[in-house]
Write a protein that binds this DNA or RNA. Structure first.
Lengths: 243, 243
DNA sequence: GAGTGGTCTAGACCACGGT
DNA sequence: CCGTGGTCTAGACCACTCA
C-alpha cells in the first residue's frame, strides 16, 4: 500500500525478473559467473522455485543468462563477435572466422553532424570523437567505416596511439573506457560507390556497395557508438528466417 | 520397450507440444478457432495442467497459437503480409502499407534449372511452373520477380488466366492449390543491374539493385516455392536488432 | 555422492470475457 | 455468474556435472 503500489501489482515472477535483470546489468555478477542457485533465489526472494524458474526462463530467452545443467546458471556476455559475420562472408575456404585487420585512417575530436548527434542523443554542442577506419583481409580492403563516439564517454581513447587500437574496437572500449556494447540496431541499405570510396575499396566507381548503419547501445540502452560501414556488395550475403 | 522407445524418453510437455503442432498443421482446428481448454487437454492427455501450459507456451512462442485471457487459446494463421514490408519501403507518405500491383509477364511449364530444383527438392526431371512478374506501385516498377513452383503441387494454377492472378500469390496458392506458405528463408545480396533488368525497373544499367532470394516452406517444412526478386537499391531499407 | 538445473504434479487463487 | 487463461505454491523425482 506504499509508494510502490504499482510494483506490488505486478506478478512476482515479473518483479523478480526485472530485479535480476537490473542486477546483471549493474554488474552484480561478473560475466561467465554463476548466479545463485534457483533454490537460493527462491529462499532469499521468498517465492517458490517455480516462480524463480519462470523469471530465469525469460532472461535466458532474452540472452542475458545461460543455463548449464548440473553446473548452474551463468551471466552471458553478449558475444558480439562483431556482426560482420552476419552480413559479410569473410570466412576462408574452410568456413572458419577470421577477424579482418583494422587500419585507422583518421582520428579527430569535433562536433558530430546533426543526424549522428541525434542518434547518440548528444546536445548540439557536445564534442565527439571521429574515427575512420579501413578493414582488410589478406591485405584486400573489405570495409570502410566511419565511427562517432561521445567525447564525454570515450575521452581515455585519446591517450592511446591509434596504431595500438587493435583489430576490434569493442574490447578496447571496455578496457580503456569501461563502455560495454550490449546490443545494436543496424540498418542495411545499398548504393553505388562514390569515387573516393571506390578507391579505398579498390572497386569500380559506381559498383554496388552495401551500407550498414549501426547504433550500438550500452546495457542501459544508451547509445554509445554510431558507425556506418560500406563494403563491396559482392562480399555480402545475409540470411533471414521469416514466419 | 516398444517401437517408440525414443519418443517415450522425451519429456511429456515436449511430446504434447509436437502432438499439438501436428494437429494444428494438419488443420485439426481451423484458423481463429479455439483449441480445447487447458484443463481438457490435461485430462485427455493424462498430464497435469502445468505441463499443458508449458507445451502451449512454446507454441505461442512459435507463433502457432495465441492466448486470449478469459476466452481461450486460438490457432493463429501466419500473417505473412508478404515480407516485402520488411525490406522495401513501399509505404506511402503516411506510412500505410499498400500492396503493389502485380503484372505477370510470362508463364510456362519447364524444368527448373539445377539450383532451383535442388532448393525445391525436386528430381532433375520434375517439371516446374515458371512465372515472371513485375510489381509496381503507382505505375512505378518496384520489383522484377522470377518464381518457380513444383508442377505436381501447383497444376491447378494452369487453369487460371494469369491476368486473374491478383496482386498476391499466396492467397491464390491456398485457394487454388491448397498450398499454404508457413515460413520462408530469404537471402539478401546486391548487384549491379543488368541492362534487361534496368529496362524493366526503369533505372540506369549498372545501378545497384537488391536481390532477395526466397524459399517458401509449407507447414511440414517442405519447400513449395522458389523466387528471386530484384528491386532498385534506393527503395530498400532493412533493420536488424542484434544482441 | 552432493549439488545443480530439468521435469512434473495437484492443487490454489486471481483476472478477465462473456452471459 | 461461470469458464477461461494467468499466477503461484511446495513439494517429488530425474539427469547431469564435478570432486
Amino acid at each position: 500500500m506504499g509508494l510502490r503500489a504499482i510494483d506490488d501489482r505486478l506478478p512476482r515472477y515479473h518483479r523478480l525478473r526485472e530485479h535480476l535483470r537490473a542486477e546483471i546489468r549493474g554488474g552484480r555478477w561478473r560475466a561467465a559467473q554463476a548466479i545463485p542457485t534457483e533454490a537460493e533465489l527462491a529462499k532469499t526472494h521468498a517465492v517458490s522455485i517455480g516462480t524463480v524458474r519462470k523469471a530465469i526462463d525469460a532472461l535466458v530467452q532474452d540472452g542475458l543468462l545461460e543455463r548449464i545443467q548440473g553446473r548452474g546458471t551463468f551471466v552471458r556476455r553478449p558475444k558480439f563477435d562483431s556482426s560482420l559475420f552476419r552480413f559479410f562472408r569473410f570466412q576462408g575456404a574452410s568456413g572458419e572466422r577470421r577477424i579482418p585487420e583494422s587500419r585507422i585512417l583518421h582520428l579527430e575530436v569535433t562536433r558530430p553532424p546533426a543526424p549522428v548527434s541525434g542518434a547518440l542523443r548528444l546536445s548540439k554542442r557536445a564534442a565527439g570523437i571521429h574515427l575512420s577506419r579501413l578493414r582488410l583481409l589478406d591485405s584486400r580492403p573489405l570495409l570502410l567505416e566511419s565511427i562517432w563516439l561521445p567525447r564525454a564517454r570515450f575521452g581515455p581513447l585519446l591517450d592511446v596511439d591509434p596504431r595500438e587500437f587493435g583489430d576490434l574496437l569493442y574490447p578496447l572500449y571496455e578496457q580503456r573506457c569501461g563502455q560495454v556494447v550490449a546490443s545494436a540496431q543496424e540498418t542495411l541499405t545499398a548504393e553505388a560507390a562514390e569515387p573516393g570510396l571506390a578507391k579505398h575499396l579498390e572497386i569500380e566507381p559506381g559498383a554496388p556497395v552495401i551500407v550498414v548503419e549501426r547504433v550500438a547501445l550500452s546495457f542501459d540502452g544508451e547509445p554509445i557508438e554510431w558507425r556506418v560501414s560500406r563494403g563491396p556488395a559482392r562480399e555480402f550475403r545475409y540470411q533471414v528466417e521469416i514466419r
